[in-house]
Design a binder for these strands. Sequence first.
RNA 1: GGUCCCAUCGUCUAGCGGUCUAGGAUACUGGCCUCUCACGCCAGAGACACGGGUUCGAUUCCCGUUGGGACUACCA
Length: 491
Amino acid sequence: MEEVRTRFPPSPSGYLHIGGARTAIFNWLFAQKTGGKLILRIEDTDAERSSEESIRGIIESLKWLSITWDEGPYFQSQFINEHVAAAQKLIQLGHAYKCFCTKEELDKKREEARKKKSALQYDGTCRRLTSEEISKKEAAGMPYTVRLKVPRGKGSVLFEDMVYGFIEKKYEDIEDFVIVRSNGRPLYVLSNAVDDIRDRITHVIRGQDGLANTPKQILIYRALGAPIPRFAHMSLTLDPKKAKISKRTHGELVAVHFYKEHGFLPWAFVNYLALLGWSTSDSREIFSKEDLIEAFSLEGISRANAIFDVRKDDPKFFTDPKAISINTHYLRNLPVEEIEPYVRAELEKAGMWDPDFEGMKRDWFLHTVDVIRSRYHVTTDFVTLGRPYFSEDYPVEPKALEKNILKHEGLKAWFPILADRLEALKTFTAEEAEHVIREMAEEFEIKAGILINGIRAAVTGLAKGPGLFDVLIAVGQRRVVERLRKAVTFF
RNA sequence: GGUCCCAUCGUCUAGCGGUCUAGGAUACUGGCCUCUCACGCCAGAGACACGGGUUCGAUUCCCGUUGGGACUACCA
């Protein structure tokens, strides 16, 4: 059996956005699943819009997602000669012709067609040129484009898309489209097909926006006498207003790096993206890398477009709630060691990393991460909500201060006593601490909750968090005592 | 305008003629748990766009309508 070869061909005109990432992921999954290869090809022929920086960004994002490719990156711009040569071959073969119509003439014709409300196709003027006429125009130095000679008559292009099924397009609905500009530079339809032929791509997996262009490309393959690859078009990703997501209107919110910066675990993000427009019949949603590759199949791709439920300015969700929930799932359920590097990266970025966290304090560090992550959604929470555990410089929430400390004046007297008693503990365990605190509540005839919530606020500055006794262990005896003593200054 | 594609809860989706009083997830609401907030557990609300066929029977097949999307460039 022939080896499967897929490709991801981003054009480097900006960052990698979620639509592109999804395309890359599906190509990668299919290659992995079939034991095939993924080729990375940078389609940088539009020099105006391409940039080195963009290429770096895209590659960085792919690496972050841990999408690996087997060949490339190749650069389309290095093969322009091949594209032009292919066009020349097509002219020689009689499958393409030179068109001397000017842009102005074409625009005029198109405008007229628009007025008459008829299809605005090229009328084939230059297709009918005699060789003498062509030579004359060429001799006169007239610029020309190259158009593919689409078969005329009753037939049609028929192909079976692996997602959408049989697609048929009549020849009469396909115009003699341009494949080379008048300045001699090839067009995307041509370059892309020629590159895919050279790279021996067997499966073209791309967005549904390529569906309408597929018949044209098939015509190019045929004219060039090249084997036609299998096509699989995937539904598009739309925004909540059903508009195609774009860098322009959504900015960073649709950029892969945005999710890296906002505390997403890369695999969680891949998992979420895989679920946008793809599913299994058992509706499973959480997949390890191995499971996902195992479960993946093109049949599971849905034909209807999916909405990326981004919520701009939503106070509760900074992005699609489902994406967050999947991230939360991984953040809380993965072995702590696996999220350790991500937490470390956040702490380092915030200047809160202590080398001892990977040395003598590692057990404490892992345990603390394990305790506090149960309430977190993104890794950045470790440096915001997690501050009191890793730093002495943490804010006190006004609400926590108000509700859990100031509201109970007795705490002013109780905090120092608690500090003394906790300090006196020889073995500082959750059980011992709980015993001390509950006993004291009984002694002073108050609800334990008053002490517990007060201590939480005093020790972490927060009104919410893990069970207090776990918090005490994580913060540690010395710091707990210190913070309790300092808390009297709040009153 | 032309061509093509699509249409199940707010969102992601299962469903491939009877198993559907339509399942899961997420989000939402209520309850339990409880030292707070989560988690977890239980419960609730929430969808087959519409109209015709075909069929003994349509969410499922066909046609139309409506709605949405893509393509239609000497952009990639």
